[in-house]
Design a protein around this nucleic acid. Structure first.
Lengths: 343, 343
DNA sequence: TGCCCTTATGTAAACCTTTACATCGCGAGT
DNA sequence: ACTCGCGATGTAAAGGTTTACATAAGGGCA
């Protein structure tokens, strides 16, 4: 019992007085073994405290029970709650989750590919298509994979994301309802599909409200706090100022708020500001940020479920799963300031 | 080359025209193999793209090349940068990092113990002694382990942390230097050793400055934002008010700041506030929070180095490694308001 | 009764490595 | 010339599983 070495299947077999094959069957295909034997085996397992050696099992089966999650940045506030969803779902199906952290470094990513090549993971979850899959040959050896937020590359990999167009649309509708017309969009010009879609939602919403193109003030940034602040500076040298700043994500929104405060303006009485993502800090900004909440845990859950399906069926049920984002109304939006509208 | 199944050591041996044993030796103990042979083997490896199958290797060796990191909360802002340190150090020694996420759930923790029992991890990194190791028997089977921030249990496990006493001392010294005498300490009454030490640093610092015990306003909380806010409320029904709030962590400090602002006070002109940890948000609070920075990446690096040492030597060099924390001065501290001192 | 089919179990090979031990060849010392 | 020793390599076992195949037992049917 308090042996130094863990019990093996052989120990169980000896105690249950059956062969190791029967033990294995009793565990994995219980219907193929007589009830009485199954009972004996279960008792023996309880006595020995046997746990099947995952290494030996994986070696024999040619695949492991680990799922590799590759993310560029673990510190990303989006990441941890998605991970919770991924993990819970995986565990309930007997899989473990391994986290790979590329820190946006191609070298790192490559090492994870080697890791995959040695069969150490049965499946792959990718955040935002960051792997530098230069060689087509590599692609061939990739295990079943699922993307998060975006499709990964040439369409082969299904993904789970959020309906960014709808999310952005909800923001626009709120601002319009409050009476705003001149709404600036502080975007992210990098290639992420999600950001393009948020921009699309902005346009669709303003189209629906009949706001003409010349009132749409677009500033491209890169999703960072700094780029939000810079966008404010650029807008203030213009003739027309917006009454609201709709930002592509919460970081940018924070930058915008800092920029506006620095210039002595109050939010939301002088300008309204909105974000996207609902990062944990959003509650604590002053004023608390009105934004779009990503159903993060749910995204993780769905992504893992999809992957597990892939692992058993080989075919994904869907190539794209888009979840519905929710508008979280806090205190950073109000009606347009008379100061600007009466000008 | 673009075979569907990965190359094995046998493929390499065939191409290099040597035995598999020689290939294995060429990889792991190159000095035991003739230079000419080594060359042939390396070529063959390059041709086949061989990667050693980690599963088979681990099975044979009886231990894996994975380190399990068990943490109660991955979303904790402290966690991710520590992880970076852990990971980098591990990788550079051929180990991978596996993350276990207990979400403070005993059931979870137990599953990870089972995982360890099946030899799936060579070592263990524990955050804040959260595993419910009820059964002594379990302890016996634990692989080499290292704690982060705190010793784990009955002294058997070395740990890497930060000198909390010194950190707290630096805060006190700063406040004293600014002229404060009535400094409240908003603590955390839960059992974490780190919190006790911060309190100790507070006392030591005030002793050194000759501040009598009756001026030390202690409020116990639980480290949350809410408990910071509640502490402010409690202090305001008292006779004596402090001129500065020294908080056990940044969350609490944020709560205190919110509480004070709600009552209409300005920070730092009315009251000074300090935190501890330097979480990412600390920069963006208004005013930006003066706090103690944890050398997070370094903590991770040291912890992993210690664990690797344990894995090879069996004996830890030290049972306790305390790193030096740095005072980060921002804008939440000023001289005591005349409003209170002249009363 | 004898034969066949089904159901339950056992035997042994395979998964891929590492490494103790055996073997081989060769130069040096007597 | 023979032996000894040493360095380089090969052979084979072991690590814990899973599973195809073989075997055994038992029941039904002719």
């Amino acid at each position: 019992m308090s042996d130094s070495t863990p019990a093996t299947i052989e120990d169980v077999a000896r105690i249950a007085e059956v062969s190791i094959a029967t033990v294995s069957r009793a565990i994995h295909t219980p219907e193929k073994v007589a009830t009485s034997t199954r009972l004996k085996v279960n008792q023996a397992i309880a006595i020995t405290g046997y746990t099947t050696n995952a290494m030996a099992r994986s070696l024999r089966l040619g695949r492991s029970n680990m799922i590799l999650v590759v993310a560029p940045d673990i510190g990303d506030p989006n990441f941890s709650s998605i991970l919770v969803g991924l993990e819970n779902e995986a565990r309930s199906h007997g899989y473990g989750v391994l986290i790979g952290h590329t820190q946006n470094d191609a070298q790192r990513a490559l090492e994870y590919l080697k890791f995959l090549n040695s069969n150490q993971a049965a499946g792959l979850i990718l955040f935002t298509g960051i792997l530098p899959f230069g060689h087509e040959t590599m692609t061939a050896r990739l295990p079943p994979s699922v993307g998060i937020f975006e499709p990964v590359f040439n369409g082969g990999i299904p993904y789970v994301g959020v309906d960014d167009v709808e999310g952005a649309r909800k923001v626009v509708d709120l601002l319009i309802a409050e009476g705003h017309r001149k709404i600036a969009f502080i975007g992210d010009s990098r290639t992420r599909l999600a950001y393009k879609r948020r921009r699309a939602g902005y346009d669709v919403g303003l189209d629906a409200a009949g706001v003409p193109a010349e009132l749409r003030l677009i500033q491209e940034g890169d999703g960072t706090l700094e780029s939000g602040r810079a966008a404010v500076e650029r807008l203030f040298v213009r003739d027309t100022l917006p009454t609201a700043f709709m930002c592509v994500n919460d970081q940018t929104a924070l930058g915008v708020m800092i920029g506006l405060k620095t210039r002595g303006y109050d939010i939301p009485s002088d300008f309204s500001v909105t974000g996207f993502d609902d990062v944990p800090q959003a509650t604590f900004m002053t004023p608390a940020l009105t934004t779009i909440r990503q159903p993060r845990t749910l995204i993780g859950k769905h992504a893992m479920a999809l992957l597990l399906e892939l692992l058993s069926d080989g075919q994904p049920a869907e190539m794209e799963i888009l979840l519905r984002p929710d508008l979280i109304v806090r205190n950073s939006v109000a009606s347009p300031s008379r100061r600007w509208t009466e000008r």
